[in-house]
Design a protein around this nucleic acid. Structure first.
Lengths: 260, 260
DNA sequence: GAGTGGTCTAGACCACTGC
DNA sequence: CAGTGGTCTAGACCACTCG
């Protein structure tokens, strides 16, 4: 049945759209399988850290060959949505994995050493979205939001000061205690406690002078150049669910980026 | 013949190394094909922008199935070493491609618009490598190097001031005139005139105050926070061939980074 | 229409994990 | 040993480009 849909789709697509636009040409079978798997992930049917059914079983279930399922999973593994483990199975990616840590925090000490960051939450409060937060989070102005202020320490020293803006609809129950008590990264908490998995993010970097409050928190002089990092994070379906403004002290750390 | 090597390799490898270390387990056939193709690229047999032989021909040549060649090329396309064009062939990736531009210059205007950067070379001279340049370029101290200073303009305004350090052995003939006259990016010139193709790079970002010279060139006040971007670029075989220090004015631009 | 990459299949066998 | 992902093959057909 799925096969028929698969073969019918491109023909129908080109028939209806060819005269309008040449863009949406063709959707191969493995992409349809991919979006079926994606649906299961979005719906929470297969949860972070769990194994999904084996390739052969998915192939039977979807009535396609194992190679087609494989190609779908290949792409999703490349996008860090799934993780393959030979001999064990294919697993839904999770931020519990320490590898995921440095994918989202690219700060490295100038002088060697790989100490993990320690997050120290300062405040957590509710507010109404201003125009900027609303735009970034695709909300309406004055929709409820939750804001977290915190500091990140590396080997005991404050290096990053952060403000995290979250949609109140999802994160209305977030409290300072949860942030304090949770073992693991913030994204790990979001995933475990709120069922929200961050897939990708965009960061915008600038150099700015330290304001008084940040200077105090980071133990630098007011006006010291800091790295300003604005991040919007997206979950499934490219839905923005976090907006973050961070100031990084780059006296003893740098932001490492790989250009592929 | 190659097939025999392929099948013999893992057995031999595990026989000799199993007792020593469990690391270098197994090299599948498609990776051997991949490194054969890589050799052709490194040697310049297939040059940037040119088409490589078709998959079927490579399969015959290497005595493997087309699917195996395909998988090798798949990986190399994912690494931006090759570019596939349906119906036309597979091509060696090149920095002439405008897509390659923003892979290596992630500066975006805050207020919309996608004006291309204009590179204005200021100086180009020979020098001897200091300890830092030597380390970054994997040279000996006092080996010859070539240094370029330049400014990047966006819509007529200076935004980036750059110093580029290059191994003299390769870039001994680089002149200010070449930089001025060449149409296209610096990497495009390196590729065309010096046969050096940049594959990947690492950037280290910090926020620093503008020194007097940079402040003048960028038309900002001394001490203004600037984004310091240090880059080491690598060619085939992870050989470093460029070290760059740039100062970016982030008054009207930001550095955009995608976290996947 | 010939040639290229892109998709899909079916089946064999290998490497790894865990019972 | 059974079950999983990983590799390799051979062949069919589709989509795209170009002369």
């Amino acid at each position: 049945m799925l096969v028929m849909v698969a073969h019918a789709a491109p023909a129908a697509a080109s028939a209806t759209t060819a005269a309008v636009s040449p863009a949406p040409t063709f959707s191969p079978l493995y992409r349809q399988i991919k979006s079926l798997i994606l649906q299961r992930l979005e719906s929470g049917e297969w949860r972070p850290g769990e194994a999904i059914p084996s390739e052969t079983e998915l192939a039977q279930r979807f009535n396609v060959s194992q190679g087609t399922v494989r190609k779908a999973i290949d792409e999703m593994a490349a996008e860090n949505l799934l993780t393959r483990r030979q001999g064990k199975g294919t697993f839904v990616a999770t931020h519990e994995d320490p590898r995921a840590f440095f994918r989202f925090l690219r700060l490295v000490p100038i002088a060697g050493g790989v100490e993990p960051a320690r997050s120290i939450p300062i405040e957590c409060w509710r507010a109404k979205a201003g125009p900027e937060a609303a735009r970034m989070l695709a909300l309406q102005v004055s929709d409820p939001i939750t804001i977290v202020r915190r500091v990140l320490h590396f080997s005991g020293k404050p290096v990053v000061v952060d403000e995290i803006y979250l949609p109140g609809e999802i994160f209305g129950n977030l409290t300072l205690e949860m942030l304090r008590d949770f073992q693991g990264s913030v994204y790990s908490l979001f995933e475990t406690e709120f069922g929200v998995r961050m897939i990708r993010a965009e960061e915008r970097l600038r150099a700015v002078p330290a304001d008084r409050m940040s200077a105090e928190l980071l133990n630098v002089r007011e006006g010291t150049p800091l790295l300003s990092v604005e991040r919007v994070s997206f979950t499934y379906g490219d839905k923005p669910v976090e907006w973050r403004r961070g100031l990084y002290s780059t006296a003893e750390h740098f932001y490492l980026n790989e250009l592929g």
